[in-house]
Design a protein around this nucleic acid. Structure first.
Length: 480
RNA sequence: UCCUCCUUAGCUCAGUUGGUUAGAGCAUCUGACUGUUAAUCAGAGGGUCUCCCGUUCAAGUCGGGAAGGGGGAGCCA
C-alpha cells in the first residue's frame, strides 16, 4: 500500500481539515528550517508541510533540499499562517530520493527559458513547464473528445511512408542500409534499395493526409493525431523537425463546411482547456504579463492571455478571400508608406509573414481565415475553382503565431487532379493508390492540418515552440 | 539556409579609452534566528572570461575564424 496517498490538488481543493493524510512529492523549498513547499505535479500550488521545531532529527531536515523526493504523513489542519488555507502537520517524513543541493540545477528562483531548455529533463519540475504540459495534456484530450463526440474515427496513419510525392517538405530517410558507401548501387550511381529493409526507399511521414483521405472514403469522418517529421533546416520559434499534427478528413464537406469545422474545433479545445486548467492558465497569463512589461510599450499586446483566449472562444474568425486580402493590403497606408519589406503590387504572389501579421494583428485584430489562393502557390490536391486560377484552400492565421491551420477542399475529379499532377511533375505511378479514391466512388471532401504545438503556443502564450513540446527536435538538436 | 545580436561564478548579469589581485545579486556551504511564503541576518567557498589563431610590452576588452544560443526572414503546421 505504498502508493496510498492523496494528491495535493485534492487536498487543496477539498478544503477539509482534521484528518490524517499521506502525501508524496518533490521539495520546492524548505523555509525557515520548518516549512516545506511540496509539489506532486497535480497542481502548480504547493502543499505547505510544517515540521515543527525540534521534532525531527537534524539529519533528516538537512536532506530536505530543493528537488528531493519525500513521503510525509500527518494531519491536515487549517493553516496557522497566511497564504494557504490548509497545511500538513508532519508526523513522519521519509526521504524517498535525495537531491544534492550543490548539484541540482533548479533553484528556488527565476530561471531563463533558454537555460531550462538545456535541462529539459528537469524543467517539468518548474511552475511554468508543469503548467504548460498540463495544458498540453488537456488540449490533446479535448482533441479526441471533440472528434469522438462527433462520431469521427481516429485513424492511425503510418509513421514510415514510401511515398515521396506528398510535397509537404524535406523528409527524413528511413533505411537499414550501411552508411559507409558499401550499399548496392544502380548503374547510374544512385542507391539501389532492393536490399533495404522495405525493399524500397522510405521516409518518415510529413503528413497523414493522403492516407486519411483513403479512410474518409469509407468512414466519412476521420481524423489523425500523430507525430509528423520535416527535415527542413528551419530555425524559428514556430518550427520543429518532429511535431504533432491533427488532420481531419471529411467526406461530403466543401470548403465552407471545412472552415466551420476548423473554427468550431479550435474554439472547443481552447474552451475545454480554460475550464480544466484555469489555475495553470492564470499562472501562464501572469508570466506573460510580466514578460511583456519588460518590453517597450509599443510592442506589448493590448489584451492579456486570458482576454485573448476568451475573445477567440466568443467571436467568429474573419473570413476573406486571398484576392480581398491582397486588395486590403494594397490599399493599406502601411503599403502606401512603403513600410512593408515586400510591397504588394500584384495578384498571384504568396503573402509574407509581415502581410499576414498586418491582417491579423493590425487590420482585423482577430484570427483570420484566408481562402481561395492562386493555384500556383498551393498543393496539387487542392480543388480547382471555377475561375480556373484559384483553388479551394483555406489557411487560418492566429495572432502572434501565424499559420496555425492549412486546409482545403480536395480535388475529387480524376481528370483535373491528374492534370495538376502532371503540371507539377508528380509521377502518377507513385500515387496510384491515392488516385484509386478518385476512380472508385469519388466524392467531394475536405480536410485540414492543425499544428498541435502552434495551438499549444497560442493557448499558453509561449513565444518559442521548443517550450511547448517536452523534448524538442530541431536542427542540431536531439538531446534526451 | 540568410540577416542580426549574444557567450564572464551553478543561475541572471556588470566590467570605463586595452593596464596591478575580474565584481554584484541569487544559489551553495557555515552560523544565528524561528509562523515562514523565492524567509531574514552575518560570514565563507566558488572563475580555463565558450574555443582556436592573430595584433600588442600587456587582451575579458581589439581583429579573424569556429562552436553554441537568442531574435528576425525563408520553407511550413
Amino acid at each position: 500500500m505504498f502508493n496510498k496517498r492523496i494528491k495535493i490538488k485534492e487536498l487543496l481543493t477539498a478544503d477539509k481539515v482534521n484528518f490524517d493524510a499521506t502525501v508524496m512529492g518533490w521539495v520546492r523549498t524548505f523555509r525557515n528550517n520548518q516549512f516545506i513547499a511540496l509539489n506532486d505535479g497535480s497542481t502548480n500550488n504547493n502543499l505547505q508541510i510544517v515540521t515543527g521545531l525540534g521534532v525531527f532529527d537534524e539529519k533528516i531536515l538537512k536532506r530536505l533540499t530543493t528537488g528531493a523526493c519525500i513521503k510525509v504523513t500527518g494531519e491536515i489542519i487549517a493553516s496557522l499562517g497566511k497564504g494557504q488555507k490548509v497545511e500538513l502537520k508532519a508526523a513522519t517524513i521519509e526521504i524517498l530520493g535525495d537531491s544534492d543541493a550543490e548539484k541540482f540545477p533548479l533553484q528556488p528562483k527565476k530561471h531563463s527559458l533558454e537555460f531550462l531548455r538545456e535541462i529539459a529533463h528537469l524543467r517539468f519540475r518548474t511552475n511554468t513547464f508543469s503548467a504548460i504540459f498540463r495544458v498540453r495534456h488537456s488540449l490533446a484530450f479535448a482533441v479526441h473528445k471533440f472528434f469522438n463526440d462527433k462520431g469521427f474515427v481516429y485513424l492511425h496513419t503510418p509513421i514510415i511512408t514510401a511515398s515521396d510525392a506528398e510535397g509537404a517538405g524535406e523528409m527524413f530517410r528511413v533505411t537499414t542500409l550501411p552508411l559507409d558507401g558499401s550499399a548496392l548501387k544502380n548503374e547510374d550511381g544512385s542507391i539501389n534499395y532492393k536490399d533495404d529493409f522495405f525493399g524500397r526507399s522510405t521516409n518518415l511521414t510529413v503528413s497523414g493526409q493522403l492516407e486519411g483521405e483513403l479512410a474518409a472514403m469509407a468512414f466519412s469522418d476521420i481524423y489523425t493525431f500523430g507525430p509528423t517529421f520535416r527535415a527542413e533546416n528551419s530555425n524559428t520559434t514556430r518550427h520543429l523537425a518532429e511535431f504533432w499534427m491533427i488532420e481531419p478528413e471529411v467526406a461530403f464537406n466543401d470548403l465552407e463546411d471545412n472552415m466551420n469545422l476548423a473554427e468550431e474545433f479550435i474554439r472547443y479545445i481552447i474552451k475545454y482547456a480554460m475550464e480544466q486548467n484555469k489555475e495553470d492558465l492564470e499562472f501562464l497569463a501572469q508570466r506573460l504579463t510580466e514578460e511583456e512589461n519588460q518590453k517597450p510599450l509599443v510592442e506589448r499586446s493590448e489584451m492579456s492571455l486570458l482576454d485573448k483566449l476568451n475573445f477567440v472562444v466568443n467571436n467568429d474568425f474573419e473570413r476573406l478571400t486571398y484576392t480581398e486580402a491582397i486588395e486590403i493590403l494594397r490599399e493599406s497606408n502601411h503599403n502606401k508608406k512603403k513600410k512593408f519589406n515586400y510591397l504588394i503590387d500584384g495578384w498571384g504572389v504568396d503573402l509574407q509573414s509581415e502581410h499576414e501579421r498586418y491582417l491579423v494583428e493590425k487590420h482585423f485584430k482577430k484570427p483570420v481565415i484566408l481562402t481561395n489562393y492562386p493555384k500556383d502557390i498551393k498543393s496539387f490536391y487542392m480543388r480547382l475553382n471555377d475561375d480556373g486560377k484559384t483553388v479551394a484552400a483555406m489557411d487560418i492565421l492566429a495572432p502572434g503565431i501565424g499559420e496555425i491551420v492549412g486546409g482545403s477542399q480536395r480535388e475529387e475529379r480524376l481528370d483535373k487532379l491528374t492534370q495538376r499532377m502532371s503540371e507539377m511533375h508528380i509521377p502518377e505511378e507513385e500515387l496510384n493508390w491515392y488516385l484509386d479514391t478518385r476512380r472508385f466512388g469519388a466524392c467531394p471532401h475536405a480536410g485540414f492540418g492543425l499544428g498541435f504545438e502552434r495551438l499549444v503556443q497560442f493557448v499558453t502564450g509561449m513565444g518559442n515552440i521548443r517550450d511547448v513540446i517536452p523534448f524538442p527536435r530541431y536542427p542540431k538538436s536531439a538531446e534526451f
